[in-house]
Amino acid sequence: MKAQLKLEYAAFLVLGIYGFAQTGYSWWWFAGLFLAPDISMLGYTVNNKAGAFCYNLFHHFGVAVAVYLVGIILSLPYLQMAGAILFSHSAFDRILGYGLKYPDSFQHTHLGKIGKKTE
């Protein structure tokens, strides 16, 4: 099942890259902003609950799709760009095994436990 999920997330990554290509922005924007959603991990400096909320907000496929669609509806290519990058980044994280976070710890994700002390 893990391999099947990784293939699905790889297809999502390709879809996100395609979505970015539709914006007409330079690929430097994609490369430069690809890791930007990880800034949301700063929420963990407050506590685990705030960290999980911030992380999940910036790594949720639904939020990424909504941002992209709002960009299309309002003819705002920079929102399309942001949505495509959020979507691509989230798919890439899922390929690596980083899922949405539960509020008890960063290591507890919807895809299972991550980190060195997982069982």
Results as ranks from 00 to 15, higher is better:
G32M: 06
G43K: 10
A91H: 00
A31D: 02
E8P: 00
F87N: 02
A10M: 09
L76M: 15
W29T: 03
L13P: 02
K6E: 14
W27A: 09
I72Q: 06
E119I: 08
Y98Q: 13
I95R: 06
A36C: 04
G24E: 13
K101T: 05
L96I: 07
T109D: 07
A10N: 01
G71N: 09
G62V: 10
Y68K: 07
I73A: 13
H110V: 06
T23R: 03
F92R: 04
A84N: 02
P37T: 01
S88W: 01
Y25D: 06
N47Q: 02
G32C: 03
Q4N: 05
N47E: 08
D38G: 02
V65K: 03
I73P: 01
F58G: 04
L96G: 04
A82I: 12
S26H: 11
R94T: 08
H108T: 12
Q107P: 00
G112E: 10
L13H: 02
M81G: 05
T23C: 06
N47S: 09
L42P: 00
G99E: 09
Y102G: 02
L69A: 10
V46S: 03
C54G: 02
L33N: 00
V70Y: 14
I72S: 11
M41E: 11
A21I: 05
L79Q: 02
L35I: 08
L13F: 06
V65G: 04
N56S: 12
V70C: 06
H108I: 14
W27Q: 12
L42T: 05
Y102R: 06
L76T: 07
I17N: 01
V67D: 00
I39E: 01
F58C: 15
L79P: 00
F92P: 01
F30V: 06
G43V: 10
V46L: 13
F61D: 02
N48H: 11
Q80P: 02
F53C: 14
G43T: 07
N47P: 03
L7E: 05
K49E: 11
G112N: 07
N48D: 10
G83A: 11
Y25H: 04
V67I: 15
Y9I: 08
I39Q: 05
V46W: 07
F92S: 13
H108W: 14
A66C: 08
Y78E: 13
E8Q: 10
A11Y: 03
Y9V: 11
F12K: 08
K113M: 15
L5G: 03
P37H: 10
L74S: 13
N48T: 08
F20H: 05
Q22D: 07
K49F: 14
H89L: 10
S105M: 11
Q107N: 14
S88N: 01
T45M: 13
A3L: 15
Y18S: 04
N56W: 07
